[in-house]
Design a protein around this nucleic acid. Structure first.
Length: 354
DNA sequence: GTCCAGGAAC
DNA sequence: GTTCCTGGAC
């Protein structure tokens, strides 16, 4: 592209943004100056998560923890519970750890350079760039999947996206204007989500269609090149629904690594592709179970899970250390979606028996 | 039911 | 290169 093309790109993208930008809560600020803390929280939530899913979480998060100091003084389990349903739970832990580092090492001042930002847990190259450009208006390198898709299409790059990172970044660097850098990247992201969509892009209404080689060549549906789909494994296991005479249900905190790290859940056997051995099906201290009807199916990014539910009623709470929660209040506890499916199933089975 | 979007850490 | 989740479109 020529210098004139770049100028037209910036002009059209920013003009479109001024008239069409999405009204997102983290874009609302009282003063002109952006609050880096809020941009950071929003960007962490937006990692691998859609805007629509993030909005309700973002608003109540900011109400609860309005600044880094408050967040650093909070309890990590409280943040994990808050995070329930949003997914990728290590983000919650990283947010908490990073807030402590900002409070201590950076004396409460939010870092405004790349090196310090990527040193924080949960902040990688994209999030660092997004914070630098959106919160501090610096012309940082920002390539999220929206921007990547736009660049691939603008330049009609029909290659495996896994092998084009360098090329895309070089183009992104050349594209980014020094003025209104933050507005520019947000504009591209908005165009990417509402016009230059992955499926059925709305090219007619695109402010930069006159520059787009994929549009010119009729290649918008073939770029980005689709990845080969992976076949998911099916894992199976047994989850234990243990209730007490007081009508409490037994939960325990999951380990800090692996799937659903640090979250509360119902105990279970390991989840395995292989048939479980009798020993692997054991639960210490309980050997007689009611096998509940139905199965829980849940799909994670890299495997599908199928769980049977074994139930035990009227168990002595003193014999099992962990968390006993009131059955009637279980819906009030923030639990990951899988655990939510389990208690909804168990409660409805119990209800149908009465 | 199947397919798909969406970054960091290891 | 693999492991981390969920919800929405179809």
């Amino acid at each position: 592209m020529t210098i004139k093309d770049y100028n037209n790109l910036h002009k059209n993208v920013l003009h479109w943004y001024d008239n069409n930008k999405r009204d997102l809560p983290w874009r609302k600020t009282k003063s002109q100056k952006k609050d880096a803390y809020k941009i950071w929280v929003s960007e962490i939530m937006l990692q691998q998560t859609t805007v629509k899913a993030v909005i309700p979480y973002y608003s109540s998060f900011i109400k609860k923890w309005p600044n880094v100091k408050k967040l650093s003084k909070s309890n990590v389990n409280e943040i994990l519970e808050f995070w329930s349903g949003l997914g990728y739970y290590s983000r919650a832990k990283n947010l908490h750890n990073a807030s402590k580092i900002i409070d201590k090492k950076f004396k409460g001042v939010f870092p405004n350079n790349y090196q310090d930002l990527v040193s924080l847990p949960g902040i990688g190259r994209y999030t660092a760039g997004a914070i630098l450009s959106i919160a501090f208006n610096k012309d940082a390198l920002v390539v999220d999947s929206n921007i990547e898709r736009i660049i691939l299409r603008l330049n009609a790059i029909k290659k495996d996206p896994k092998r084009t990172r360098k090329e895309v970044e070089e183009i992104a660097k050349k594209f980014t204007p020094s003025k209104r850098a933050g507005d520019y990247v947000q504009a591209l992201m908005d165009i990417g989500s509402s016009i230059c969509k992955s499926q059925n892009p709305n090219c007619i209404n695109c402010p930069i269609n006159f520059l787009c080689l994929a549009y010119k060549k009729g290649l918008t549906n073939e770029i980005p090149l689709k990845q080969k789909k992976i076949i998911k494994k099916l894992k199976k296991g047994i989850v234990f629904w243990i209730t007490s005479k007081n009508n409490n249900v037994y939960l325990r905190r999951r380990p800090d690594n692996g799937i659903l790290p640090g979250t509360l859940g119902f105990p279970s056997t390991k989840w395995s592709e292989e048939r479980l051995t009798a020993k692997e099906k054991e639960f210490p201290g309980i050997n007689k179970w009611d096998k509940m009807s139905g199965k829980i199916n849940h799909s994670f990014s890299h495997f599908d899970l199928q769980l049977k539910i074994y139930a035990k009623y009227g168990f002595d709470e003193m014999k099992l250390k962990g968390e006993w929660k009131q059955k009637s209040k279980i819906e009030k506890i923030g639990l990951p979606t899988l655990m939510k499916k389990i208690y909804l199933h168990a409660l409805s089975v119990e209800k149908s028996k009465i």
